[in-house]
Structures are given as structure tokens and as C-alpha cells.
């Protein structure tokens, strides 16, 4: 699947054995987005010509030349990935730090808002927690939001709820997140002309 980090677009994929990899979202052959590709076994293949890549980014196979072992120079960049408590973290560059932990929380859903981070904060009235925003959502359990700036004024919001929430509470949290997005987008549209005209 496609995802966006400050370094650009990435192709996020899970191998058959369950390992998550974050590759640069561009096949070096003809520039096709790798996030449109397909995963077979432990490799990601480009949808255009089927060139496939392993988890460290090395090219494994060029179907047009079945007898050829691809030279080592053909590779896509891969970013460090950690999976912790249901959240996938991608590091830009070198890092030794462990990703934040959200003990007791589980991911509910991810949604994109046409609003920037500041507007989102204003809309929630949330307090910044150890990582992400603690949001006392009306009528829902305690919600934790992880926000990732996207292109333009967009923000990707990951919604986490306590692991012991009931299905009804989770649905309430999902609806609260929709309301939050509407509120934030209203504020953004009224306050910032550039977004409303360039959408």
C-alpha cells in the first residue's frame, strides 16, 4: 500500500511470512509507483514489468530476461521499519530510538483530513501526550490520535482506542473521529484561503 513520510511516498508491504517493508515508491526501471505492485512470497513486484525486489531493496528478478541475475546496482531504497502494538513506524534515515509504545491501546482506523496539524489541534482541544494527542472525545472512550502531515494541508490521522473498548465504544470513536475531521476542515476552510482554492 502507498504511504507518505517526510522523505516522500513509500510502498509499504508485508511479505507472506509477515515481515513489513517500506520501499521507495518508485521502480528504477521506468519510474512506476511500486505501491501499485504485488507481493509474492518475500518479494514486491512492480505492476508494469514485474521486476521484483527483496526486503533490503535488491532487484531479484527481471521477467523479460529470465536467465539474467540482476546486477546489484539495481535497487530501491528501503527504510527501517518497526511494528509495535499494531502500529507500523518508518524511520527516515538512521535511528537507534525505539518507537513510542501505546500500551493498552489498539489501532482503530486511519483517516485523512484536509486540515493541517495546528488546525487539528485547535479542533480537538487535545493535549499533547507522550506521543500523539490525547483527545477526550465527547461520548467516546479516551482516544489517542497519531497525526502525520501529508502533502499540502492534509494530515493523516491514526485513531487508537483502549484495547478493552466494546464494539459500540469503537463505533462511537470512529464516528467521533469523523466529526473531528469535519470540524477541523471547517476551521481550515474558513481560516486559510490557499487550501480552499487549491483543493
Amino acid at each position: 500500500m502507498p504511504a507518505r513520510i517526510p522523505a516522500g511516498s513509500i510502498a509499504l508491504w508485508r511479505t507472506q511470512s509477515g515481515r513489513v517493508t517500506a520501499s521507495a515508491d518508485r521502480c528504477p526501471h521506468r519510474g512506476m509507483r511500486l505501491s501499485h505492485g504485488f507481493v509474492r512470497g518475500e518479494a514486491l513486484s512492480c505492476i508494469y514489468h514485474g521486476w521484483s525486489y527483496g526486503q533490503t531493496g535488491e532487484c531479484l528478478r527481471i521477467p523479460a530476461h529470465p536467465g539474467l541475475t540482476p546486477p546489484e546496482t539495481i535497487r530501491v531504497a528501503a527504510h527501517a521499519v518497526e511494528e509495535a502494538w499494531g502500529v507500523i513506524w518508518v524511520a527516515v534515515g538512521e535511528t537507534t530510538a525505539e518507537p513510542p509504545r501505546f500500551e493498552g491501546f489498539v489501532p482503530l482506523r486511519s483517516l485523512t483530513a484536509h486540515a493541517d496539524l495546528a488546525t487539528l489541534k485547535a479542533a480537538t482541544g487535545a493535549t499533547a501526550g507522550t506521543a500523539g494527542l490525547d483527545w477526550p472525545a465527547p461520548g467516546a472512550p479516551e482516544i489517542r490520535l497519531l497525526s502525520v502531515p501529508q502533502e499540502g494541508y492534509e494530515t493523516l490521522i491514526h485513531v487508537l482506542v483502549p484495547g478493552d473498548s466494546s464494539p459500540a465504544q469503537r463505533i462511537a470513536a470512529s464516528r467521533a473521529a469523523e466529526t473531528l475531521r469535519r470540524t477541523a476542515e471547517d476551521i481550515q476552510a474558513k481560516g486559510l484561503a490557499p487550501w480552499s482554492t487549491t483543493r
Partner: peptide, 24 residues
């Protein structure tokens, strides 16, 4: 069409180096 709209960059690179051709 869905391939063509998802190639990066949109313009065709004429200088070698940006994309890797093979015999095919």
C-alpha cells in the same frame, strides 16, 4: 492508462541515469 498516470516523474527523462533500461 493507469500505468501512465503513475510514473514518476511525469516527464520522460532523456538523460541516462534516472531510469535503468535492459536489452528488452
Amino acid at each position: 492508462r493507469s500505468i501512465l498516470e503513475n510514473q514518476i516523474p511525469r516527464l520522460l527523462p532523456l538523460d541516462p541515469g534516472m531510469e535503468i533500461p535492459t536489452r528488452a
